[in-house]
């Protein structure tokens, strides 16, 4: 990592300094603890705060989630809930035809599954294509590369709520986009209240917000490709298209796979920016899985935490599979790297 620099040091030091006195106070009792328990005891001490928080707020909920998904009722206190076994799962999976959400018992869940599936396919495709083109361009010898890289990175830092509001303001009926269309003589369009356009807007806005991140990773991969390969190709007079398919793409492939899976994992969880943009509407046309879980678990009047937990476990299963594939790909890359 190339982050060591004077400013970095200063920021780090400024953060650490004010609590210096605290460190001095707890040193004496810690020495006693160290004498009593030795190195293992100290390791336990250093791990304790993080692992305690981790255990209570990540590990315990992870286990409890399974318990929740086997109970029913709308109480949040686990002992107040009645055990129903796999009923919640059966309810979620009861379906006439999985291709038609309206034939399912939990039609909203399946609508969300369908929407999320379509969103994932379209958004990830567009995201990867756009990020790839951008990374290829930024990898050329251009004036002010770091400036251009920063340009694409700006939306990545914005909060999803801000992203949603920025685009709501532009896409609303009297917004900038419609007024530009109007001035060129086109009819204004209801971007956010039309089923098709709202979905398209959700995809576009999320690509806009995240492409800078993926461009960055792809660019790092491109820059790791040895320059002499390109020089050799140029000497042989290879056409640029062929250079891309025969050199760039194969050598970038490990990196690209990781990026695609990362994009998939993120896309499956899509929520905030589209929720602020469209609120899941019109109707249920931009209702995605995370919003479904949130609304069934908390927001709706007929809240059903058990059902929400079961749905979240099904979504989590998809994410676990994706992550395992990612780890597998990463390990294969490492092995390959070791052989070369």
């Amino acid at each position: 990592m190339t982050i060591g620099s004077a400013i970095g040091q200063k920021i780090g030091a400024a953060i650490v300094a004010p609590i210096g006195w605290l460190a001095a106070i707890i040193d004496a009792p810690l020495k006693l603890w160290q004498r009593a328990t030795g190195t293992t005891g100290m390791a336990a001490f250093f791990l304790a705060p993080n692992m305690l928080i981790f255990g209570v707020f990540v590990l315990a909920p992870f286990v409890i989630n399974f318990l929740y998904s086997t109970t029913s009722g709308n109480a949040f206190f686990l002992p107040d809930r009645s055990f129903v076994g796999a009923e919640q799962y059966q309810r979620l999976l009861e379906c006439g035809s999985y291709l038609d959400p309206s034939t399912c018992r939990e039609d909203l869940f399946w609508k969300a599954v369908h929407n999320t599936g379509l969103f994932v396919v379209l958004q990830v495709t567009l995201l990867i294509v756009v990020s790839m083109i951008t990374a290829l361009i930024l990898n050329r010898e251009i004036v002010g590369r770091s400036f251009w890289r920063a340009v694409f990175f700006f939306p990545v830092l914005l909060s999803p709520v801000v992203v949603g509001l920025i685009w709501r303001w532009i896409l609303q009926r009297q917004g900038l986009l419609n007024s530009m269309l109007y001035q060129f003589g086109y009819q204004p369009t209801e971007w956010l209240t039309d089923r098709f356009w709202a979905f398209a807007a959700g995809i576009t806005v999320s690509v806009w917000a995240h492409m800078g991140f993926f461009t960055l990773i792809l660019l790092a991969g491109l820059q790791a490709i040895p320059r002499d390969l390109y020089e050799a190709a140029e000497m042989d007079g290879t056409r640029p298209g062929r250079v891309f398919w025969r050199i760039t793409l194969p050598l970038l492939m490990p990196n690209l796979l990781v990026v695609i899976i990362l994009a998939l994992i993120r896309a499956v969880q899509i929520f905030d920016e589209v929720y602020v943009l469209t609120g899941g509407g019109p109707g249920t046309s931009t209702l995605f899985l995370t919003q479904y879980i949130y609304e069934v678990g908390f927001a709706s009047l007929l809240r059903n935490p058990g059902l929400a937990a079961a749905a979240s476990i099904l979504m989590g299963a998809v994410l676990v599979v994706l992550t395992l594939v990612q780890l597998q790909v990463g390990r294969r890359n490492e092995k390959k790297g070791a052989r070369e």
Partner: peptide, 21 residues
Amino acid sequence: GTLMVPLSVLLVPLYSVISAV
């Protein structure tokens, strides 16, 4: 392992843990 289970998956049980403490 936790990298695999994002917050959106743990929403319901985390809420109950938070309430319990």
